[in-house]
Nucleic acid binder design. Structure first.
Lengths: 331, 331
DNA sequence: TACTCGAACTAGAGCGCGCTAGTAGAGCGC
DNA sequence: GCGCTCTACTAGCGCGCTCTAGTTCGAGTA
């Protein structure tokens, strides 16, 4: 920076002004300084910048690497953050790298707020995090924690899916749940409620699972094994999310079960792969872009307005009927 | 930090020593200082830390958000970086956010090196980047640029795939290429070479495309339209990558073409979804973990050894035969 | 002419650390 | 007593920037 200033014949302060796009420099000086900077290859060092001004204007995003829906969310986070003048840093949780670790990386890189995509952490951890910094949880609801919260109205989504299936004549509808996954408690509850409402509590069955393809595959195997030993297949399955649904489809189709002729499958998320599958997946669409927008806005507003109470945004999901759901098979 | 020092009755320097886990503090002082720090809630500020010591020990990773293979690579990058004592920061390129922008974000957050997953940028840009910082390109080869390079031996992979198809009796084998995508020039060349080697140059056909599901879908439509106007379908398609293959499968299957009965499809990457599809995708496997390991190692070695010449790691890919390839249909 | 005022620019402190060069004091042999 | 070494600790500069409180200067105004 000093080099640029010297070579352009101005003070460092003016260079700083110019690089911050602030008023106080003439057009020609501005151009000259930028030109010189470009020649020298100068770029402001953000570590020093962060240090000097109190704020980093950086949002951290914690996500799960293989969760395809998260990539949809991320796609929506960038533009909104940019619009509000914030930088975004990503940190992924993987098998070998815990969410806490991913969050620490963000925090120690001076993110002012963290957006957690479908966090799987303990409520206590989230609450502590919320005390320490501004945190927004997307998809996972933790009412007792000091974090903002964006999700879709799980119950509405599930209800639509269930009504759709029942309308098609299904009665033996099984739900693969998402374990501790975000939203799964609500979805499970809504499934049970729907079965009850349709007078099918006798048929209700929740198979424990989680939000991965593997879980779907396993459940497929389980159902087929049960079928082999005489128990009838369900006629429809409401999966915990799209990934689980895909796993299930794979496992079933490979064993000759035809979807939706023999069995209907409904997912949840409408992650961007869902409509690309060989037969598009019937699923409950969550608007990723809108969710991302809300999450960013919550974070920024809390950063700039100081002590707001934790807030909650509930978006309406919408059933998207594609190729994996059809009329109940004739007995 | 000053607060901690004062409250513990020591100098700031000693606090610094203790937090860097360096020798030069007695056991009891160490414990006392850490206890005090914990009470106050002090955590070292990494911006200041970065600024003060020259180095950040942080690697930046640029990836394309929806490229599923990249998430496989990222999963491999984290542990290797951690092993070598480096932090990792992610920055995604999306439709609205160029690679250059993503890279800038990393650089201005003081990443010492950038690992580019399948970059789509101009060679000139990559070269400039390589001059400016340590850069490693994964999948895309740019010989004239000053960057390290990790990829798999595309030609070998394609050859295996082609031999497999020819062995199954296929002759009308079409290749959907990846446009400017990483590795696609090599794959295209290898496809042509294989067709020639098998005496099929007359049948060779490269359909322009790119590494997305959309491209596969479009090509599917194109082939079907051609079929309707009398041109026979190819009996096999070698897609530019797995995503393209998936799009193609969707588009064809929806229109009643049965895979692999009517047509075989082979992908490239073995991204972790490939084996999860309803019928597992026959594809050329690139070892993501190994590629990630090499990329991290290249970056770190170059950072620590100063001026090494750009290096290249070429890993052997391997054909994985699954459900989308089969014998050529009877005429 | 004497002034006010705003635009363009600058000096220099300070952000929170790491690091180098140093000191104080205890223990040791001679 | 002396010098020596070793451990435990400290003073204070500098990393590259931002920001406050200025200064300078030319144009406009009474």
């Amino acid at each position: 920076m000093a080099d640029v200033a010297e070579k352009a014949g101005v003070s460092r302060a003016l260079v700083s002004i110019i690089f911050r796009n602030q008023a106080g420099a003439s057009r020609e000086t501005r151009e000259r300084v930028l030109r010189v900077a470009d020649e020298i290859g100068y770029r402001p060092d953000s570590a020093a910048r962060l240090l000097a001004r109190g704020r980093s204007r950086t949002l951290g995003v914690m996500f799960t690497v293989h969760q395809t829906f998260h990539t949809d969310l991320i796609t929506g986070i960038y533009p909104e953050a940019e619009r509000l003048g914030y930088d975004v840093l990503l940190s992924g949780a993987t098998h070998g790298r815990s969410e806490a670790k991913a969050v620490e990386a963000l925090l120690s890189h001076r993110c002012e707020a963290v957006i957690l995509l479908g966090p799987d952490a303990e409520p206590a951890y989230l609450d502590a995090l919320g005390q320490r910094t501004v945190a927004v949880s997307v998809s996972r609801r933790v009412p007792q924690a000091r974090v903002d919260f964006v999700h879709s109205a799980e119950a509405k989504g599930v209800r639509q899916a269930m009504d759709h299936l029942v309308e098609l004549g299904h009665r033996r509808i099984v739900h693969i749940d998402g374990g501790r996954g975000p939203g799964s408690a609500e979805r499970r509850r809504a499934y049970r409620a729907a079965m009850r409402r349709h007078g099918l509590e006798g048929e209700a069955r929740v198979i424990p699972g989680h939000h991965t393809e593997e879980s779907g595959i396993e459940t497929g195997r389980l159902l087929l094994a049960e079928h082999d030993s005489g128990r009838p297949l369900p006629t429809a399955v409401l999966a915990g999310n799209d990934r689980c649904a895909m796993g299930l489809l794979m496992s079933l189709t490979r064993s000759g079960v035809e979807v939706p002729r023999d069995l209907s499958v409904v997912g949840y998320d409408d992650s961007h792969l869902s409509h690309l599958m060989p037969i598009g997946l019937t699923t409950v669409r969550q608007d990723a872009a809108l969710m991302a927008e809300h999450a960013v806005r919550f974070a920024v507003e809390r950063l700039e307005n100081g002590e707001l109470e934790p807030r909650e945004a509930v978006l309406d999901p919408k059933l998207v009927v594609r190729g994996t759901s059809g009329p109940v098979p004739a007995p």
